[in-house]
């Protein structure tokens, strides 16, 4: 705890605020890129039924892949092509995106698939055009699952970004890795607590956002959640 409450560690180029800032920056960039790739792709696969084989295989395969191994392999492969710091940042971001895509993709796909076919048929029958069915029916109805995918993905990213400190990426993982190198357990504990708090904060923030933006018609808050309605949270495999 000493490390955490020492004012000297709360300022400067490698102070805790800087580390939190870096951690957030990497995480949010990776999440944004992953969402930009995975949400439209999930919608496309869900609506058209094309490429469904990708979904099941991808989720399982990437869960089995050890992210530490993947991270280190990519750094060794990519870093020689880039000067200095980018050599570590870019492969790390690629791995973060790679790990964040499957939960968003599979949940978006499942969400779009789970939209009541009768509601879509009714919308079409009332003269909704394809785009309007998407924006007014399919997207709002699949929102709970899409957001749950984004939530899993963000936790995965925050967790993996911590590990990326091993290959010299900035962020809160630095405290853990540097603390280990310096045999400074209090520094490691400080890093662990901060990372855990960061993850908890974002998890609750996304839960709050979900409650705010998802229609109560979909969540049926008054009854016990039906097992099938909410899939098992994708575990953070880091």
């Amino acid at each position: 705890m000493n490390y955490l409450f020492d004012p000297a560690h709360w300022s400067g180029a490698d102070g805790i605020p800087t580390l939190i800032g870096e951690h957030l920056l990497y995480s949010l960039i990776a999440l944004a890129v992953a969402a930009i790739i995975a949400v439209p792709l999930g919608i496309y696969i869900g609506v058209t039924g094309k490429g469904v084989f990708m979904i099941a295989g991808l989720a399982n395969a990437l869960r089995a892949l050890p992210s530490v191994g993947l991270l280190i392999l990519l750094v060794l492969l990519i870093s020689p092509a880039f000067p200095s710091r980018m050599g570590y940042v870019l492969p790390s971001l690629i791995v973060l995106v790679l790990l964040a895509v499957p939960p968003i993709l599979t949940n978006t796909y499942a969400g779009v698939r789970a939209v009541d076919a009768a509601a879509v048929d009714a919308a079409k029958g009332m003269g909704f055009r394809t785009m309007k069915i998407l924006t007014d029916v399919q997207l709002p109805c699949s929102l709970p699952l899409v957001l749950s995918g984004i939530r899993s993905a963000l936790l995965q990213i925050i967790s993996t970004a911590t590990i990326a400190a091993y290959i010299s990426l900035g962020g809160l993982g630095r405290l853990l890795i540097d603390g280990k190198a310096q045999n400074d357990y209090s520094q490691m504990v400080a890093g662990a607590i901060l990372v855990a708090l960061l993850a908890l904060f974002f998890d609750q923030l996304l839960a709050f956002i979900t409650r705010r933006v998802v229609s109560p018609g979909l969540t049926r808050r008054t009854i016990k959640p039906v097992p099938a309605a909410e899939p098992v949270k994708t575990p953070v495999t880091v």
């Binding site: 936790l155 967790s159 662990a192 990372v195 855990a196 993850a199 880091v238």
Partner: peptide, 15 residues
């Protein structure tokens, strides 16, 4: 259970 799940593994190993 959900809260425990959010704690990153490296952090849990250290804590």
């Amino acid at each position: 259970a959900g809260l425990l799940y959010t704690v990153p593994s490296l952090a849990l190993f250290v804590l």
